[in-house]
Design a binder for these strands. Structure first.
Length: 573
RNA sequence: GGCGAGGUAGCUCAGUCGGUUAGAGCACUGGCUUCAUAAGCCAGGGGUCGCGGGUUCAAGUCCCGCCCUCGCUACCA
């Protein structure tokens, strides 16, 4: 039986999550998992924080926190944002705290070494004697040897745009403390990507039906692959297996696995943590080492090389029958009102503050409706307003209230009866004459999230067309039985809409289901995707309606204008 | 510099193998309706498909050149 293993890119634990990341890797994944489950598929949804790396040590030291406290804070804050958005992982962990993570990462390293895919190489790097650390190119500044600009970074000169070699910078300085760094010899392990490519990753990649942006980018990379370093000189991280350190020269500092080597292994170790927690310690292998598993990585496009090339190479190279990625629906970039999201430049939306004023379910829907699937897209406050008002409040919300309030007022708050003589007619009016409808789950499973939101709204519009043509407010006076039959149909349609809403707005879907008097989870109402003659009735006549409230509040022009003005004021425009 | 993505209605975007008159939503205009959150339904106006060539019976779609926007360029993650 096919199983789905869904991952969202591990958020780096050194800052808050913003909406660009939410729509890039987390919300589509949650929507996809919910869609799978509506179809009765087995799925495990894995995520957690990425907690190693030099950026975290610098961030923690700057505020005099311990590394552990620092990453715990950002790990918890990210989780809070996901909770507010209704993003429900089956397991949420962190690479510095997950019980299996360090040992599994070392095991990957050992096996890659045993299988001949690691190369050990010595090189020269800048070392800051004051901070007692080797400096990544980004952490060295100096004078550009091309144009003489004195604020050049070790990797690139911001003035002339030249791609620089850090060791050739003139007057180099440590970016953290300003000290003049010294050159030191250091030894590192490299992942032999060219060999992995030739042993199997190359053909595997070529034969796979990748999304366009993935195919183009990785295809180009495959032509010119270099071995890639996977260790670092620092204390914060997972130590390289001791038995492999053996022959290193005296005085070489602590060697840890490079954060980008251990991070994706988190997908594996967190799955194991999930299996352990549910009392089936070996269950993680059913996902990771079964040919029936479909592994889906939700990521932003900046992560494509890691998820389509490097991590698959690692999975392949350990030769333990790990599954390879089945799909990598990489999102493009998400901007905010025409500019990049920037937390430091205050051009951002703070999620926790956002949810004090706006509906998180509506926010989910708008984000999915504007997802950067095929090209960069953006959050626009005007579009958010128009989406909430026109699509959610006017089309779905108003359909719910116009029907339910009518039933409450004139039919005793109970789902009216459908007279057998009218059955065929009502069903045909609803299913055949009010417009086409489709299951949004089909779009979602094809990773077409924008289209899926349109499908949902189009389905809701069918309900409005039906009500308008049947005009139960007129029938109530001339033919009450027929009016009741029409409303019976309308209520069934609303039940279907609630069901279709589940992957996008799970909480609101349940609320509407309960307004209709539905019991149990709406997601369990039916496993069918669209109503047919056999299954269009989800609720029996006589069902007592629950309390009726407006599902979506509209957003005023003034509210939106104030939001845009506040954003620009914060950014200093 | 190299590689990649994009440019279609006022706005946001669909457009599959080249094939009827290039579509949708929002916005706008007119009509209908009064159950409903001033909501709903119907109809309509609005496009030189970035520019210039080429292939073809036929090009938004394929090829070449150019312009513009954005991303990546692998020891930040």
């Amino acid at each position: 039986m096919t199983r789905y293993l869904i991952t969202s890119a591990l958020p780096y634990a050194n800052g808050p999550i913003h909406f660009g990341q939410v729509i890039g890797a987390y919300l589509p994944a949650d929507c996809y998992v919910r869609a799978l489950r509506l179809r009765g598929e087995e799925a495990c949804f894995v995520c957690g924080a990425d907690e190693h790396g030099v950026a975290i040590t610098i961030g923690a030291e700057a505020e005099e926190s311990s590394y552990e406290d620092y990453v715990a804070r950002w790990r918890d804050q990210a989780k809070e944002t996901f909770d507010r958005l209704g993003i429900e992982f089956d397991v949420w962990s962190g690479t510095s705290v997950s019980p299996f993570h360090a040992e599994m990462s070392r095991e990957f390293f050992r096996r890659l070494d045993e299988n001949g895919y690691l190369i050990r190489r010595a090189s020269e790097q800048f070392y800051c004697p004051k901070d007692e650390m080797f400096l990544a190119d980004r952490y060295v500044t100096g004078t550009c040897y091309v144009c003489g600009h004195d604020q050049a970074r070790g990797d690139e000169c911001p003035k002339c745009g030249t791609w620089l070699e850090a060791l050739r910078l003139e007057v180099p300085r440590c970016k953290v403390c300003g000290t003049s760094p010294e050159r030191r010899q250091t030894t590192h392990w490299y992942l032999d990507l060219p060999k992995l490519r030739d042993d199997g990753i190359g053909p595997w990649f070529e034969d796979h039906p990748w999304k366009g942006n993935v195919k183009a980018f990785v295809g180009a990379m495959l032509k010119d692959l270099q071995p890639r370093p996977i260790t670092r000189d620092m204390k914060w991280g997972i130590p390289v297996p001791e038995e492999l350190l053996g022959t290193l020269a005296e005085g070489e500092p602590d060697k840890v696995l490079y954060v980008w080597f251990d991070a994706p292994i988190g997908y594996v170790s967190f799955t194991r943590e999930w299996a352990e927690a549910r009392g089936e310690p070996e269950a993680w292998k059913d996902f990771w080492r079964s040919p029936d598993t479909r592994l889906v990585h939700f990521i932003g496009k900046d992560n494509i090389p890691f998820h389509c090339l490097i991590f698959p190479s690692m999975l392949f190279g350990v030769k333990q029958d790990y599954v390879m990625p089945w799909a990598v629906p990489a999102m493009e970039f998400y901007n905010l009102q025409g500019r990049k999201f920037s937390t430091s430049g205050n051009w951002t939306i703070a999620p926790d503050e956002h949810f004090t004023r706006y509906d998180s379910e509506a926010t989910r829907f708008y984000l999915l409706s504007s997802a950067p699937e095929t090209s960069d897209s953006e959050w626009s406050w005007g579009e958010f307003q128009s989406c909430v008002n026109a699509s959610l409040a006017d089309t779905i919300g108003n359909l719910v209230t116009r029907v339910l309030r009518f039933v409450a007022k004139h039919f005793d708050g109970q789902l009216p009866a459908l007279a057998p003589a009218l059955e065929d007619e009502v069903r045909a009016s609803l299913l055949e004459h009010s417009g086409p409808f489709a299951d949004p789950v089909d779009d979602i499973l094809a990773f077409r999230f924008r289209r899926a939101t349109q499908t949902l709204i189009a389905n809701a519009a069918v309900g409005n067309v039906y009500i308008d043509r049947e005009a139960p407010w007129a029938l109530r006076k001339s033919d009450p039985e027929r009016a009741g039959a029409v409303l019976f149909g309308a209520c069934q349609w609303i039940a279907w809409i609630a069901r279709w809403m589940v992957p996008f707005m799970p909480t609101r879907a349940q609320e509407i289901w309960e307004m209709l008097g539905g019991s149990g989870p709406v997601a369990a109402a039916t496993t069918d995707g669209v109503p047919t003659a056999a299954n269009w009735r989800l609720l029996p006549a006589g069902t007592a309606l629950g309390a009726i409230t407006s599902p979506f509040e509209k957003l005023e022009d003034a509210t939106i204008q104030a939001e845009v003005a506040a954003l620009e004021a914060r950014a200093g425009n």
